[in-house]
Design a protein around this nucleic acid. Sequence first.
DNA 1: AATGAATGAGATTTCATTCAT
DNA 2: GATGAATGAAATCTCATTCAT
Lengths: 198, 198, 198, 198
Amino acid sequence: METTDADGCRGRGRRRCPDKGAAILAATLTLLAEQGFARMTLEGVARAAGVSKATLHLRFRSKSALAAAALRTLRHDAAPPDTGDVSADVVARLADFAATLTQARGTTLIGACLAEQAHTPELLELFREHAVRPRREAMRRLLERARARGALVGGADPDLLASALLGTFWADRLAGRSTDRDWARRTAAAVLDPMLPP
Amino acid sequence: METTDADGCRGRGRRRCPDKGAAILAATLTLLAEQGFARMTLEGVARAAGVSKATLHLRFRSKSALAAAALRTLRHDAAPPDTGDVSADVVARLADFAATLTQARGTTLIGACLAEQAHTPELLELFREHAVRPRREAMRRLLERARARGALVGGADPDLLASALLGTFWADRLAGRSTDRDWARRTAAAVLDPMLPP
Amino acid sequence: METTDADGCRGRGRRRCPDKGAAILAATLTLLAEQGFARMTLEGVARAAGVSKATLHLRFRSKSALAAAALRTLRHDAAPPDTGDVSADVVARLADFAATLTQARGTTLIGACLAEQAHTPELLELFREHAVRPRREAMRRLLERARARGALVGGADPDLLASALLGTFWADRLAGRSTDRDWARRTAAAVLDPMLPP
Amino acid sequence: METTDADGCRGRGRRRCPDKGAAILAATLTLLAEQGFARMTLEGVARAAGVSKATLHLRFRSKSALAAAALRTLRHDAAPPDTGDVSADVVARLADFAATLTQARGTTLIGACLAEQAHTPELLELFREHAVRPRREAMRRLLERARARGALVGGADPDLLASALLGTFWADRLAGRSTDRDWARRTAAAVLDPMLPP
DNA sequence: AATGAATGAGATTTCATTCAT
DNA sequence: GATGAATGAAATCTCATTCAT
């Protein structure tokens, strides 16, 4: 419609249909989470995204590249703000963590990445970078600031403490235990309360 | 039929070589952990076990049944005994947990089971039952007994506390952090120390 | 049926169907000559040979290996014997050359090998070795013996002379000229007669 | 439409860049000779010619039509003139023949046309008409004139003699023998010398 | 029981061709 | 006229499973 597109390219040739990119990546992420990398097929992605298989190969060099691009769309949007109340802030972040990974079928998705470790290691790396690290870093900084202002007692390493808090999610999921909405509050209470100043 | 089976391999009547069963399951577990369920091929298992593909189907109804049988061989052998010293006992169990899952490529194996959740849910169930639950239960009972005799203060749910301790392993692995031999000690210190009576 | 097969293997497992090997190679050679290497499909070979595509991959590592095996079946059977009459012997060999390459769709087959020169050079090499070289060598030796006993005058290189005699076939085919049964006689007359002793 | 075309490229109205036609045909001929018809891709031609795939279809109905057009550009330029010395003239023409077909990857190109005989017969027809026939005719006329003025003895058919001379090239190439610069001289000596008057 | 042979179903990838700007 | 996007129709190859000895 205009003469330049998002990349500043003059509009020579047919314009790339703008919806398809997002549809492809969304379908990929869904199927990746539902079926794992190896079981996900390009045929399935194409059907779910409403494009042809050839279009997938036109836009992504290979199946791995497609999965990687989909993982890159995992964003850390709208992190809850810090209020200064350590307990409340930790609970908020735990709830956000659990909600994100539950709704996005996080456990199956992480399974897909773990299972491909030997064959396609970049998948796990991307999942770490886009889904795990940002939330983990936010949690760590939160704890660090709390300790700095004396809101936490004891000398616990904030990194280890973040692992304990977030790891509880993985352990509970693996054990088949529920991680519903009350989970964040109970987890924070169990791990954090003993470290609060009296 | 006429001789011992299941382990003995006296093999007088040459009816069935009982070693093969063990070799098949061991090969399956190895390849499952190395490649994941979907990428593991029966051809590969057969070659690694020194049998033919047809033999696999003779003994196991399907690929899923084979993987399930392999997971059933995961045993919780030689759990460290309780000494009565909560800290030392927790450290011992954490170290055992980490050692087992690290040496047996636990992360890829759990990935394989998670990734197949939708398609072959019994794999995750078996992994839980044979690899996760026994160690988790042992940890929970240890904490329960400690609380009963007053060696732990605060009202933390032993289940949640077990999740926090064991979950630290998953969180650290996912974050790409090392879980070497000192890890158990540091983890116990970070999570448990605040709960010990003064 | 017996306990050993052609390779001396004891008969463990299902016997390989003895017809299929020959049927596959015959179908391959036919389609190679009809369609060329690149246009020949494994689907087509499988259908023509009455086997499944997977069987082709079971017996031959790749499409190239299949084509190479087919070319190896080109045999130099029943070469006409030498009578001592140079003219008659040359005519007989030229006729054999033309007949073989005409009935076996020689020109298309050689085209297939030439066209793949850059991509699959072993095809041309095999065609040379199995279809061209034996007949060429026979012609060369025939001429050499004739010269040795004085049945040919002049100092012509037997190799070059063989090329001239056999090459006439290629040149005529390329020019769209017929190479029917009288062709061998006329060619021998044109090239050879001037060299016969008066 | 308003300016010259086909070669001029005055390009005032920017209606069509006439260079592109030549670039396309040159690229096609090169790739046809390098890869054969079936393996040559329009993508490759477009890239080599610096145009888009769609442009190819705009100017040529199909891949076959493109290849045919490229073959039509094969020209018989600058044939060596006749000097009246049969031997020298034949050597000159043989050398021209060998040089042309060697430098232009003639063997692969002819292979491409032969291999497509069943599927796209016009390719071979065009190759004959543009690459083979002119040189063959020139050779034939040369021999005919020589015979008419008594420079050749014996009653050899000039057509067959031309086949023998030019065919030696194909036979030597097929046999893997070199056709270097001395080849023309040796070939003429072997085939022609016995026919020269004493 | 055990094995090698055989196969149907399907996976990724390629490519000539058409579409829309 | 020219182009980048899009696609339908294959082609090669893989694999869990069944067959026949």
